[in-house]
Amino acid sequence: MNHKLELRNVTKTFNTEGGEMEALEDINLEVKPNEFLCIIGPSGCGKTTLLRLIAGLDYPNSGEIILDGKEVIGPSPDRGMVFQEFSLFPWRTVLKNVEFGLKIRGMKDKARREIAEKYIELVGLREFENCYPYELSGGMKQRVAIARALATEPAILLMDEPFGSVDAQTRNILQEELLEIWKRTKKTVLFVTHSVDEAVYLADRVAVMSARPGCLVKCLGIDIPRPRKRTSMEVNEFREKLLMLLSLERSKACIKP
C-alpha cells in the first residue's frame, strides 16, 4: 500500500488570554509511503498540535493537509492515532477495545472478532483479550492502543509520544515491538517524541522542530542499517548531531524576545 501524506504551508494559531499565539508556522512536510518519520523538538514546540491537525482533531488556520490526494477535513479511521495518555475505554475488555472501530463501522460480530484477534496476536496480548484495562500494566495498555489503531487498517499511524508514560525498560521493549509491527504491516508511521534516543533508534527520517513559533528546522535521514544497536558508534554519532541541533534551537529560542 502506498499512502502519501503532504503538509503544505500549514499554520496554526491559538487564541489565548494574552492574544494570539502562533503554534505552528508555515509547516511543509512530505511523508513518504511506508516511511517511519519521527518529529522531535523541545516541549511546547507544537509537535502534538501538528499531529492533531493531521488526525483532524484540530483545524489549521491556513495551508492544507493532503492524504492520498484528498484534503483532511476531520477525524477519520484512515488515520489511526495512539495518544500519550492511556486512552483505552475502561468499560471494554481488550478484545472489545480493539473491535471498537470496526463495530462503529458496522462490521458483523464474527468478522470483527477475527480481525481484532489478529491484531491482539500481533501485539502479543492473546491471553489478555478478555481482561479489562485496569488489569493491565502501562506498557500493555499502549500495546492494546496500538492494536486498536491498526485494526481499522489506517493509511497512516499517528503516534503522540505513546511510550512517554511507561518506564524506560518497557519503553525499549515497546520500541522493538513497534519496529517489528511496522515491518510486518508496512504502515506509514508518524511518531512524535521528545527523546533523541527514541528518534534515532526508530526513524527513517527525523524532522526537527523549534519552539515559538513552531516550525520545521531540518529533516535528517537516518541511514543506519536495521536492526540498530542502541550503543553503536553510528547511533551515537547521530544522537550527538541531533542533540547539537536541538540545543542550538533552544538557545535561539531563549534569545528571542
Binding site: G56, P75, R79, F83, S87, K103, R148, T152
Partner: peptide, 22 residues
Amino acid sequence: ETGKVLGCIGDKKLIKYVAFPY
C-alpha cells in the same frame, strides 16, 4: 477524541458509545 479517530463521529454516536458507558 479516541472515539472520533476511530470513526465514532457526531453527538449521537459519541453519546451512545463513549459518554453513556463512561
